[in-house]
Design a protein around this nucleic acid. Structure first.
Lengths: 193, 193
DNA sequence: ACGCTAGTGGCACCCAGTGCCACTAGCAAG
DNA sequence: CTTGCTAGTGGCACTGGGTGCCACTAGCGT
């Protein structure tokens, strides 16, 4: 036996995620009921909502860990200029192994493509924005709700979102798309004169 | 009698908006049921949903007209550089009379403060993003889903959102907050070195 | 055998949103 | 005046997301 303990909690959670991703991809998100996802995962509707607060949450994996890691990466790159630090952190936190890219594509295609999921994403991204704004505030010595921290947080997330859109529509690497978007942003959109 | 015809459709719609804004401001958005809003507006629940597709839509007024006007303003400012054009259009479309500012504050406080409304806003803002991206694409001769048009659309909206946050938290003028945010964005965040 | 805990299923409930039907008011045409 | 059309409305039943509550089971230490 390997040392990987099979936490039954995590196991069923994973089965739900897989079933949800599969169903949401094959049909529209809104036409799939929570009952169907639960059935496909071999659990009851009630149990589904014990593992995920909303139907939409089933596509996000462990996003909280993602945010925590972003926060750590920001703290670890305090030697770089602020924008470069944020870019590096976004690139690093989205540095997936090749084998995981299809899953990421599936997730992001849903999140960016389905209106209901796009709306829900705002709630999750609010955590990201808060973390980035606090980082900028720390670096610049102002409050996290001041103009510059908030603007940097929201516009860098806009850059990341745009990079994901471009990545989904093309064949390039996500890292390059992220860096291209951040370069445009940090340079004041040089291609517009 | 004045020449202002009192379209009964618009009249009840206005009563619903007023009742909704009042109730959502006094309690949390989510704790107010559509029944309560309908009762307060003196109509039935069923009629509420004939005037507004969702509970959240009742706080947005005639947002479609807003988007159309933004589109016209963008077309009318083609003599300026792209970012300046977008800034001018955002400023102009948000140039409210003093008497309307309290209502705008109330709306934006709800939209930016209540998580459910913040999520819903994504759906409405998608129209704005599309209009701005198409404008940038036209100006730069590339497709509306290319990197620069999408990034400019999303990050200028980030600037506008941040300006609204700042405006809500302070005492200054909305126009100045918008221009300050756009200046930061267009200049590549000069205050970060 | 006992008790404790974590995970589960079932059930009833609330609420957002929709489809359908019946009713009424206004208004035009005969 | 009456007939017919239309727009707006209310009521009702239904689907689906999400929650609170309770009962059941499995594991596990004592």
């Amino acid at each position: 036996m390997t040392g990987t303990a099979v936490d039954p909690r995590e196991a069923t959670r994973g089965r739900i995620e897989a079933a949800a991703l599969d169903l949401f991809t094959r049909r529209d998100f809104e036409t799939v009921t929570a009952d169907e996802v639960a059935d496909a995962a071999g659990i009851s509707r009630r149990t589904f909502f014990r593992h995920f607060a909303t139907k939409a949450d089933a596509v996000w994996g462990d996003f909280h860990a993602h945010v925590v890691r972003l926060e750590e990466l920001l703290a670890a790159t305090a030697d770089q200029p602020v924008l470069a630090s944020i870019c590096a952190a976004y690139v690093e936190v989205n540095d997936y192994a090749d084998a995981d890219l299809p899953l990421l594509r599936q997730r992001m295609r849903l999140i960016l493509g389905e209106p209901a999921l796009q709306a829900h994403s705002q709630v999750r991204y609010a955590d990201v924005d808060r973390v980035v704004a606090e980082h900028v505030a720390r670096r610049t010595g102002c409050r996290p709700d001041a103009l510059v921290p908030r603007l940097v947080a929201l516009s860098t997330r806009a850059a990341a979102t745009t990079a994901f859109e471009t990545w989904l529509g093309g064949e390039g690497s996500l890292t390059e798309d992220l860096q291209a978007a951040f370069a445009q942003l940090a340079g004041g959109f040089p291609t517009l004169r």
